[in-house]
Design a protein around this nucleic acid. Structure first.
Lengths: 98, 98
DNA sequence: ATAGACTAGTCTATAGTACAGACTAGTCAG
DNA sequence: CTGACTAGTCTGTACTATAGACTAGTCTAT
């Protein structure tokens, strides 16, 4: 019981950060989402969202595909397998402790 | 559904911080705990734990009673009513989003 | 008495961090 | 040519956790 609580001390901060948690939670339900959708759904500023996405990509939790809608840039994001695992583990830790 | 996720962006960081989340989670199950117990149960350094307890006290989430065990200082901590509410609300937000 | 362990805490220094907002670069419509 | 759209970089600010050294007092043992 108290062991469950101790695990909170080692949660992955990459995913624990609320802004990024919003992003991965959104992606976990959706398979793919573009930048616009994440921007509107999270309420984060574009600059901030961009930085968080880069960090999640660097961590290997999110895959980012840059393409075009017509001639406009289009950024498609999805959760990687690893990202899904990490989120699932995070859920377990949080649920167990709370 | 997505509204639940948006709420993650406004979680109370006082309680979201893992070190403090451990403390309040421990206190929520226990009614009262001394410094030693929290120190051992969380694995935080004494200095760090002391700072977090002060912040939780300042936020009104934890009440701290300084007394003595024999002639040694003894610090007793408990969750306030407000602290209990905030934790309960935090739980709801997290559960809804995950 | 002197050294060491115990209580809890303050303080300092380090290192990391999110975030807003300004800016870039390209495309398009009027 | 102006203004809106795409996504992103970059800068500056401000906050933050954390370890570890240190304080002050009490106790035990040598």
């Amino acid at each position: 019981m108290s062991a469950d609580i101790q695990k909170l001390g080692e949660v992955d901060r990459m995913i624990h950060e609320p802004a990024r948690l919003m992003v991965v939670a959104l992606l976990s339900a959706v398979k793919e989402a573009d930048f616009q959708y994440l921007h509107r759904s999270t309420g984060l500023s574009k600059g901030n969202l961009s930085v968080h996405l880069s960090k999640l990509e660097e961590a290997g939790y999110v895959a980012i595909k840059k393409t075009f809608r017509g001639k406009y840039p289009l950024t498609i994001c999805r959760l990687t397998e690893r990202g899904r695992e990490v989120l699932e583990n995070y859920r377990k830790v949080i649920r167990a402790a709370l």
